[in-house]
């Protein structure tokens, strides 16, 4: 259980740094770093878009967060299923 305690402390500290950020910069929106770099590039003088193509562009933030959530859900499902499968298998073999 020791590792679980350490990881819980790390998660707690992570939350603390976030709330600390909220206190020292109450107006911060915590926008994406990827987006910030995108903006820096668009504003740079030598930037010339030469390739634009999108199979599908999410119409807005809602659809985008749906797809990100779906990505996390699919991943979690696979991890949970596999771990559960082996745990159950290990148990039935030892019985």
């Amino acid at each position: 259980m020791k590792l679980e305690y350490i990881v819980s402390v790390v998660i707690l500290l992570f939350a603390v740094q976030f709330f600390y950020g909220l206190i020292i910069a109450p107006d911060a929106e915590f926008g994406g770093a990827d987006g910030a770099a995108e903006e820096a590039i668009v504003n740079s003088q030598s930037y010339e878009p030469w390739f634009e193509w999108a199979l599908f562009e999410p119409p807005g933030g809602e659809t985008e967060s749906l797809l990100f959530a779906l990505q996390a859900a699919i991943g979690s499902l696979i991890i949970g299923y596999t771990f559960g499968y082996y745990k159950g298998k290990g148990k039935s073999e030892s019985d």
Partner: peptide
């Protein structure tokens, strides 16, 4: 599992107080 772990983690945008971005 390893692939799914990449799937999950790379979808989570976590806030960072170092630069006030995620």
């Amino acid at each position: 599992v390893a692939g799914a772990f990449i799937f999950v983690l790379s979808s989570l945008k976590l806030p960072s107080a170092v630069t006030m971005s995620s």
